[in-house]
């Protein structure tokens, strides 16, 4: 049994990492273009980890995660833009809370209506829902229509490097809280129920799990976090446009989940960092970003279908976990 202290250990690690990155930013060791990228990475990590909840843990394929990202970006963006009476810091919190709530309700309501669908059928419907949300947004007053919502007050205010430090701090803290909540959900009794539905829905019903409700709530929770990621996007870029949320975004996030391993939170985080940062690092490769994604997806699927590769992967993960355990023993 893990003690409370051990559960909090990753948070201490996250705080340490934050300190290190902050130092690199303040001393300008980290170049400007990389500093600019950090909030994007945080945003995408929230997207990938929350999508993993649906794809990896619940076992339902969603091709429309960008829909809830859009909902969050517009709800949050409009609150930031129009409710100027509220002080900015508080407004960001209000925007996040409101976007999370709206995305949760829309996500839950969506799955409630299509709860009879599974597999390919559900995947197609989620794909359509993503485009549906993008079109609806255009006709809602106050969203700026096809031109998009502009002049959103941004969390990246001030001079370099202060503006990026601010943007990163907001994004990082919200990302850590999101991951912490999702990981705790997965480790709880409810998390076990979610994985039970994935492994076998008849057996899940036979032990007393309400399978429909479990799917609806899990999908709504994933939508909630995508909504939060949407607010971060709006607050970082200062402008949102319906074109920012097309199905390519959903596919990109899905690639991150698949590359990192379905049902593997740490994998999603690492894959996201690599896929967002890689095109920047290999400057010339930026134009081939989508090509890299496509190749990564094809390679992962082919490799994971290959028994020799999965056996190799298992050997490596066993060795790593033994190694990590031996490190732990060394410390005691």
């Amino acid at each position: 049994m893990k003690t409370r202290l051990q559960r909090l250990l990753p948070l201490a690690g996250a705080a340490l990492l934050y300190g290190v990155i902050l130092l690199l930013m303040a001393t300008k060791v980290l170049p400007r273009s990389y500093q600019q990228m950090l909030p994007t990475i945080c945003t995408y990590i929230i997207m990938a980890v929350s999508l993993n909840l649906v794809v990896g843990f619940l076992g339902d394929l969603s091709l429309g995660h960008a829909a809830f990202y859009a909902v969050g970006a517009y709800v949050g963006g409009m609150i930031l833009r129009y409710l100027t009476a509220i002080p900015f810091g508080v407004r960001v919190i209000v925007a996040i809370a409101a976007a999370a709530a709206v995305a949760f309700v829309i996500g839950g309501a969506f799955l409630y209506f299509v709860r009879k669908l599974h597999g390919d059928y559900l995947a197609i419907v989620t794909l359509a829902f993503g485009e549906f949300v993008r079109s609806i947004v255009k006709i809602i007053p106050g969203t700026g229509g096809s031109a998009g919502l502009t002049d959103i007050p941004t969390i990246a205010a001030g001079a370099f490097p202060i503006k990026y430090i601010k943007a990163f701090s907001w994004s990082y803290v919200i990302m850590v809280i999101s991951i912490f909540l999702i990981v705790n959900l997965i480790r709880s009794r409810h998390g076990r129920a979610i994985m039970a539905v994935r492994d076998n829905s008849i057996a899940a019903a036979s032990v007393g799990i309400n399978v429909s409700r479990c799917r609806i709530v899990t999908f709504a929770i994933a939508a909630l976090f995508a909504g939060i990621a949407g607010v971060l996007y709006a607050a970082n870029t200062a402008a949102v446009n319906p074109a920012d949320f097309d199905y390519n975004v959903s596919i990109e996030v899905l690639v991150m989940v698949v590359l990192g391993g379905m049902g593997n939170i740490g994998g999603s985080i690492i894959a996201t960092i690599i896929l967002v940062a890689l095109p920047k690092v290999l400057l010339d490769a930026a134009q081939y970003r989508l090509l890299i994604y496509a190749i990564a997806l094809i390679a992962m699927m082919m490799l994971n279908a290959n028994p020799r590769f999965t056996a190799f992967k298992r050997r490596v993960s066993e060795k790593t976990s033994k190694f990590v355990k031996s490190l732990g023993r060394g410390r005691d």
Partner: peptide, 26 residues
Amino acid sequence: MAHVPEGRRIFAELSVFANLKLGAYT
């Protein structure tokens, strides 16, 4: 009333312990 479904419908990706814990879900 407990039901042991046909064809060993266990939760294949979860541990034996987690499977048993899920039996007491309610």
